[in-house]
């Protein structure tokens, strides 16, 4: 019983997938450095030190509250994106799914519909759109990037046509409850812990890694690849809608342009967290660290009065650096002359 418990608990530590319940805390102190997630922790530490010296007011409580809320929205989207990237796919439509579910689902708010109807409807819409993505990607033999480039525009277009670009602005106070204080961060932690458990300790998780490692191979070994891919994109849609709820709670209004560019932030958090863009290796915990690092850097830049227009440049550079490191690691591992492609 104690062994079982320790096994489950080990899931939530770095490198948990290599655990068999025998490792102890002291083992971590000596070997934790070896894990993929460790360098990111170091970068986070460096960033915190850097900003605490250069930016006055960095240690203010308000700032951390703000930071935690910013990380929460991107982090939840990134968790779904991690699952997708682990299977070797990509989902560009996360921002559009977010906007679609909150704008279309939120149309009941001015009509006075109760919250216990609105919230499930929003989550259901996101799940449905994710499911559509998954079905299209598994039916049509085309890279997920092209399909989600299409659905990203379709969902955004439908949102704009139906709402005509109009905000839903007086929102009852009960909807902002979810965005207060450290509550968004609490939800992020729950989502992260849940999906760490799912990826490392369940059949679904094992198969996600298997599909990313080699889709053909896992198909031949009897993994229902189509089913799991649909599940993964559906989960990504659900999580996008969920982070939409938090975004609404944080901002206090619903705008149809919400979530533009989130796909880039999510991909950045995922690849910075050490998940390979080729699929098959990486972790949800890494994504959590990646999202934290991104949030730190972007908030720090804002506090240093850098124009928010430049955030895309920073995100892009971080993405290129992260995937370059990953690719270099693979090149060194294989030593091939030209890429596999």
């Amino acid at each position: 019983m104690r062994k079982q418990l320790r096994k489950v608990l080990c899931t939530f530590l770095p490198g948990g997938n290599e655990m068999n319940g025998k490792k102890t805390i002291s083992w971590y102190l000596f070997n934790g450095v070896k894990f993929r997630e460790f360098p990111i922790l170091l970068y986070i530490l460096i960033m915190v030190l850097f900003f605490s010296f250069t930016t006055p007011g960095f240690w203010a409580v308000r700032n951390f509250e703000n930071l935690s809320r910013q990380i929460a929205v991107v982090g939840i989207v990134s968790t779904g994106m991690t699952l997708v990237v682990l299977t070797g796919g990509i989902d560009l439509s996360v921002g559009s799914i977010l906007a679609f579910s909150i704008s279309i689902g939120g149309r009941g708010i001015p009509l006075g519909r109760p919250m216990w109807i609105i919230y499930p409807v929003i989550l259901l819409l996101g799940t449905l759109l994710g499911f559509i993505n998954g079905v299209l990607i598994t039916r049509i033999a085309v890279p997920a990037l092209i399909i989600t480039l299409g659905t990203m525009n379709i969902f955004r277009g439908i949102t704009m046509v139906i709402t005509r670009g109009i905000y839903i602005t007086p929102i009852p106070p009960e909807y902002t409850l979810i965005g207060r204080g450290y509550l968004p961060f609490f939800f992020l932690l729950i989502v992260i812990l849940l999906f760490m458990f799912v990826t490392l300790r369940t059949r679904l998780g094992r198969n996600i890694y298997a599909i990313g490692g080699g889709e053909q191979a896992s198909l031949y070994s009897g993994v229902p690849v189509v089913k799991y891919k649909v599940v993964v994109y559906t989960l990504s849609g659900f999580l996008s809608a969920f982070s939409g709820l938090i975004l609404v709670g944080r901002s206090g209004f619903i705008q149809p342009q919400a979530g533009v560019g989130y796909e880039m932030n999510a991909i950045a958090a995922v690849v910075i967290g050490g998940t390979s863009i080729f699929g098959g290796s990486g972790s949800v915990l890494g994504t959590f660290f990646g999202a934290t690092l991104m949030g730190l850097i972007l908030t720090g830049l804002t506090m240093q009065a850098v124009d928010p227009y430049w955030q895309g440049l920073v995100t892009g550079i971080l993405v290129v650096l992260a995937i370059s490191l990953d690719s270099l690691r693979q090149i060194r591992g294989r030593g091939q002359l030209i890429s596999k492609r």
Partner: peptide, 21 residues
């Protein structure tokens, strides 16, 4: 660096657009 053109150009797109803005 043998990166995937999809992801690379997505990143450069974001960077260049951000520079322009």
């Amino acid at each position: 660096l043998r990166l995937q053109p999809f992801v690379v150009t997505l990143a450069t797109m974001t960077m260049v657009r951000s520079i322009v803005y």
